[in-house]
Each structure stands twice: as structure tokens, then as C-alpha cells.
Nucleic acid binder design. Sequence first.
DNA 1: ATAATATTTCGATAATCATCGAAATATGAA
DNA 2: TTCATATTTCGATGATTATCGAAATATTAT
Lengths: 113, 113
Amino acid sequence: MKSKSAVEKLAALAQESRLAIFRALVQEGPAGLCAGDIGARLGVVPATLSFHLKELSRAGLLKSRQEGRFVYYAPDFKAMNALLGYLTENCCSGGVCDDACAPTAASAMKCKA
Amino acid sequence: MKSKSAVEKLAALAQESRLAIFRALVQEGPAGLCAGDIGARLGVVPATLSFHLKELSRAGLLKSRQEGRFVYYAPDFKAMNALLGYLTENCCSGGVCDDACAPTAASAMKCKA
DNA sequence: ATAATATTTCGATAATCATCGAAATATGAA
DNA sequence: TTCATATTTCGATGATTATCGAAATATTAT
């Protein structure tokens, strides 16, 4: 993961509506939700929603597919995992910390879709 | 983790210099680095560096301690792990995805310090 | 074709953020 | 105390971002 693209992903997530959108989609899974349902669920008007979905997509965090009149959005789990990995990369230089500290509970997307 | 504070943490990380600072500190471990060394390593002038360190601290991502004239900064690994957990929480609602998809490589801070 | 529904683009406005020189503050050394 | 070093605060400037009404585009149903 390039640093620039990591910053873009983090910036995309660093906004209340977009973070809520992303988390809802993570919980929804690979099937995703269509734009209208996301907007209804989170109370975001269409123009604003579209802007945010575009930001998340541009950052590479979402995949979308058209189904008739509807556009379905789902997380790009692979990209998200790459971001998480980038943030935690080489923690403590693999030194004393790896012995002194226990791993935390899983904090990666389980989904590879 | 409250959503507001997650947004604040993500916003703090969503800036090139700050992400570089944070990653350098993650790799350095709990002992941390003093401000001057961070600035020298990353090529950031003092005023700007101080601004960014304050942002990261305000967001709860860094701990600091004074040692003589020096101020040492280190990641708050616990807070960071909470953020990673929040992002991946309840992935795919614990449904089909948990069976269909394998966990990825560890992507959490190993350090609890 | 016409109408209805879903989504995106445009455009203007208001708000927030990054940078860094200069000055201020804090601590240790001579 | 006086000086040198480390870090932070102040203040001004330029740049980026969020919001959303109105209009445009796209797809399906009648």
C-alpha cells in the first residue's frame, strides 16, 4: 500500500457519515446495499450521499455494481485489510514487544470478497 | 469506542506527515521518540511538527512523557487497537462470510503498552 | 412514448485545516 | 545568572472539504 493511497483511505473514513456508511456496509457483507437503502438507513439526502459514496469509491474502499435502477455498494475487503496491515506494519520492529505483549483479538476483515 | 472519537482518530491519521509520524512511532515501540528526532527523521520543521503531534495526541493516538528537555512520544496501542476493532466490528454480521472467508494475516498492534 | 423512480452532477456557500516564521516557554548546562 | 537547546504557541495565509437544492442522467414500468 502506497502512503498516499493510505492517506486517501483514511481521509475517506474520517467523516461521520462516510464512516457510518462504511461500517454499515462492512456489517452487510459482500452483497452490499443500494444507495437508496443506505441513505434511508442513515438519513442522508441523495446529493450528499452520492458525494460520500464517490469519495469512498475514489479512495478504493468500496466496490459497486449496477442492478437495474439500483447501484449496490459493498466494501472492498481486500483493500481495507491492506490498510489495516499498513497501519500496524512492523510494530515495535518485531523486537521486545513481540515477547512482552500478547496479540489482541482479531481486528481484520474476515471477508476476502 | 464512540463514533466521534473514531472519526477524530481517523482524521488525525489522514494526513501524510501525521501518518508517517504515527507509523514511525509504531515501529519504534513503547519507548517512543523525542520530538526533535521525529522532526529530523521525517523532515518536518518544529512548528509544524508540534501542530501534528498535538493533533495526534488530542485524538488519543499518542502518549507523551517529558524527560528533561525532551518530550517523548509513543503510540497508545490500546486506543489504536480499539480503533481497528471498531472498523472491522461485526463484519458480515457474523453470517455466511465467516464460513466462506478465511481470516487475513494479523492486523492488530501486538503491543499493549 | 410517457411517467415514475434511482442516482449523479453542478454550483454556490460556509466551515475546517495545513504550513511555517517569529515569538514565547521550559529545561538543563556553564 | 546567563546561555544554549527543545518544544510549543501565535497569527496570518492559502488550500481543501462538507452540504444540499436544483437540474441532469439512467433505468424500468405502463
